[in-house]
């Protein structure tokens, strides 16, 4: 039986070269493997903003639940109506003005401030919940 312990360290150089060295220890015999992975040689790091990158972590179920309740209240939907996270506001009979009302209701409920640009891009419950989580974490982090 061989015991294997591996340690690896990842280092970010100033030129954003990513290198890792791995040390494997097998029954006392040590062999060092040095692996150099990819690196960005050029100075320009691909901007996350330009590529439309968004951190999309699925929001907590209770947040989604709360959002659903507020949406139902704002659109005056029957309490037992089906509302999934992927429901589009437009499909529920909401126009852009109703969407603003929903966002304002959410703002107040979660005590956050949604910027106009963001609020106008929300079309589903899931999107709203994700944005809320993002804003809450930003607020607690700041």
């Amino acid at each position: 039986m061989a015991t294997i312990s591996a340690t690896s360290s990842i280092r970010f150089c100033s030129s954003l070269k990513l290198s890792s060295s791995t040390t494997l220890q097998v029954n006392g015999r040590t062999s060092t493997v040095k692996v150099t992975h990819a690196g960005w040689k050029s100075k320009s790091f691909p901007s996350l903003r330009c590529t439309g990158f968004r951190v999309s972590c699925s929001a907590k179920p209770e947040t989604v639940q709360k959002v659903c309740e507020i949406v139902k209240k704002q659109l005056a939907l029957p309490a037992d109506s089906e509302l999934t996270p992927d429901s589009k506001f437009a499909a529920l009979g909401a126009d852009s003005l109703d969407t603003v009302e929903i966002v304002m209701g959410l703002e107040e409920e979660f005590d956050i401030n949604v910027e106009e640009d963001n609020s106008q891009n929300i079309t589903t419950v899931q999107e709203a919940a994700d944005l809320i989580e993002e804003l809450i974490s930003k607020k607690s982090g700041a």
């Binding site: 852009s96 003005l97 603003v100 966002v103 304002m104 106009e116 609020s119 106008q120």
Partner: peptide, 14 residues
Amino acid sequence: LQKQVLALYGGFLR
């Protein structure tokens, strides 16, 4: 123009 209207509506509700 639509964005302006929606922003105004949000402003009123706030």
